[in-house]
Amino acid sequence: MSSIDTLSLVFLTTGFTVGFGHCIGMCGPIVISMSLNLKTRNTIWPHILYHAGRVTTYTLLGGIMGVTGSFAMVASRIALIQKGVLIFSGVLIIFMGVMMGPWLIKFSCFKNETGIQTFFSRTFGSLVGLKSTLAFFPLGLMLGLLPCGPVYTVLIASARAGMETAGMYQSFMSGMVLMLFFGIGTIPALFFVGRLAGTARFIRGPIIYKLGSFIMMGLGIYFVFKGIRY
């Protein structure tokens, strides 16, 4: 077994364990928001596509780290994009919360079709409603760029693995493989949380929507705040 094979297994396990701790905290709100906003649609494929997109971004970043052999250089170049993605994900969660709950319609003077919810649904419907299931793949691709400590840690290992491998192609592949295995390891935890939210939505609809909407808006504001400070 080569060192890359061994490291791949190590990072698959890391992804799995970190998934049930750190990732649920950072990406859980996004996955739950997504689940609750799926409404009556099939909840498996959007999740699969979202995670496929996220892991694809991790894998490509791993490849880039492997080729360059420098985590610090690549990280400094994508820092601004990551800040933008963090703010965007916060805005996304806020609007998912707004769309999901009955809050605004009650407080709003607009209770008819020209109401504030209609405004939100028109303006952001295409964003958070994601009419096509396939749209979850590019969403995952983008949110794969969210700044995340454990992802950084494995990217450092990918850069090191790239440095220790001879040839550009091998360096690219070794970085990619490590991040691919890590990404796959993180899927079970987030998939579980997403499915749990989806199941809860079906059986306790009104309560889940009301409380979920409130929590999502709070978390979204927190994400935006963190993004601005990042």
């Binding site: 749990l196 306790r204 889940i208």
Partner: peptide, 12 residues
């Protein structure tokens, strides 16, 4: 299932 859902929401 509802309890589990809210447990995870608070946990995260």
């Amino acid at each position: 299932l509802s309890i589990l859902f809210w447990f995870f929401t608070v946990y995260l």
